[in-house]
Every structure is written in C-alpha cells, then in structure tokens.
C-alpha cells in the first residue's frame, strides 16, 4: 500500500485522455444517433398522429356524409312512398272506376241477356202456347165453336160505333163486286142470312155475298170486303197470335 506519484499522475492523465476519447468517439456519436432516432421516431409519431388526425377527419367526414346519405335516402324513400301511395290510390281509383264501369257493363249485359232469355222463354212459351192452343183447338174445333164465333162476329159488327164503321168504309176502298165469306163448316141459311145482313149494314154495300168452306180455318169465318179482311177463325186467330209473338220478340 504505497502511493506512486508517477502512477498517480499518469492515471490522471490517462483518465482525462480516456474521457476525451470516449466523449468524441462514443458518447457524442451515440447520443447524436439516439437523438436522430428519437427525432425520426417523433417524426414518425407526428406523421402517424397527423395521419390519425386525417383519418379521424376523414372518418368524421364519411360519417357525416353517411348521415347525409341516410337522410337523403330517408327523404327519397319517403318521397317514393308518397308517390307510390299516390300512384296506388290513383290506380286504385282508376281500377275502382273501371270495375264499376265493367260491373255496370256486366250488369247491363246480364240484364240484356236476362231480358233476352226471358223474351226467348216468353216467345218459346207463346209458340208452345200457340202450338198447344192450335193442337187443342184443332181437336176441339167444330160447328158449335164456329157458330159461337159467328155469334161473336155478329155481336162485334153490331157493336161498332159510327166512327168505326166509317173507318171501315174508308179502308175497304172502292166497292167490291162481291163479299167473300170463308168458313170452316158450311153455314146454315139462317146464319148466312144474318151474316149477310150484318155485313151489308156495316159496309154499306149492296153486293153479292159469296160463301165457301175451308177446313184449314178449323172453326170460324174470314170475311173479305175488297182490301178489308175480317178474321174470325181459329186459324187466323192462332196465326195472329203466333205472328204477334214473333213480332213482339
């Protein structure tokens, strides 16, 4: 344990030299590198923070834009819904109107068809009735019926008013030479005389009356005075009945 002043002095010098060496070759360069790296890291952090802020700003803008888009979409959806509702109402109204018109047309058509069917049924019923009456009267026709018809004719002729008689005279035209009377059965003399007198009275003519028979009349009479024809037979009545049915429907 001795102190060497030479070593003491050299150690001081050595240490100071070592301080200088390490300061210039180690501390300063390393600290500079650390400072540069720290600056680079801070710059990167700053850049990252800046990017983060930009990203946040972009995110905010996109969120706002999305909100605006949502609002616009909602408005467009409401407008579209309103337009759809209006269009639906308009079409529904048009459809209701069309349906009403179609219903009216259908009802009218059905009414026409129903009326037509009813008319056809009535016409068919009339025809069937006429056929039935023809068949029935054909079987029931006879001199008694004809006498009855003659009586009805005479009663009708006698019941004509003056105006009706004048109308008959005007319609028969120029006075014919003969009055034709066709009956289904042969008339008796009394019947012929009564009829002749009645006809002369109604027509005002003093002409000959020609009587003849036609079995197709079934029963009754047909009197022809010029263009004036009086139908008082079963056949003519049935024909008129059938013709009436045909004309009516």
């Amino acid at each position: 344990m001795e102190l060497s002043w030479s070593t003491f002095l050299l150690e001081i010098i050595n240490f100071l030299i070592l301080v200088w060496i390490l300061k210039h070759f180690l501390y300063q360069p390393v600290l500079d590198v650390l400072a540069r790296r720290r600056a680079a890291v801070e710059e990167k952090i700053s850049a990252a923070r800046h990017m983060n802020e930009e990203a946040e700003q972009l995110r905010s803008e996109y969120e706002n834009r999305l909100a605006v888009w949502d609002q616009e979409r909602q408005q467009a959806r409401e407008v579209l819904a309103q337009e759809l509702n209006e269009e639906r109402l308009r079409r529904l109204e048009a459809l209701t109107s069309a349906l009403a018109q179609e219903r009216e047309k259908t009802q009218a058509k059905e009414s026409r068809q129903r009326t037509k069917a009813q008319h056809e049924l009535e016409h068919r019923a009339l025809l069937q009735g006429a056929q039935f009456a023809t068949r029935l009267l054909s079987q029931a026709a006879g001199p008694e019926l004809e006498a009855r018809l003659l009586t009805l004719l005479l009663h009708g002729l006698s019941a004509l008013s003056d105006d009706q008689a004048l109308a008959l005279k005007n319609q028969r035209g120029e006075g014919p030479e003969v009055i034709s009377v066709v009956s289904a059965y042969r008339l008796s003399a009394a019947q012929r005389q009564a009829l002749k007198e009645a006809l002369i009275k109604v027509s005002g003519l003093e002409t000959r009356v020609h009587f003849e028979e036609d079995a197709e009349l079934l029963a009754g009479l047909r009197v022809t005075i010029g263009s004036w024809v009086l139908y008082a037979s079963i056949k003519d009545d049935l024909s008129g009945f059938a013709e009436f049915a045909h004309v009516a429907y």
């Binding site: 060497s4 002043w5 070593t7 003491f8 002095l9 150690e11 100071l16």
Partner: peptide
C-alpha cells in the same frame, strides 16, 4: 486490476 493500486484509485478520486 488497476484499481488494486492505491495510486490509480487515488488518481480517480482526485479527478
């Protein structure tokens, strides 16, 4: 070790 020498440690302490 240089530090086993009192001259060296004394030099460092003096520094």
């Amino acid at each position: 070790s240089p530090t086993r020498d009192l001259s060296a440690t004394a030099a460092l302490a003096t520094v």
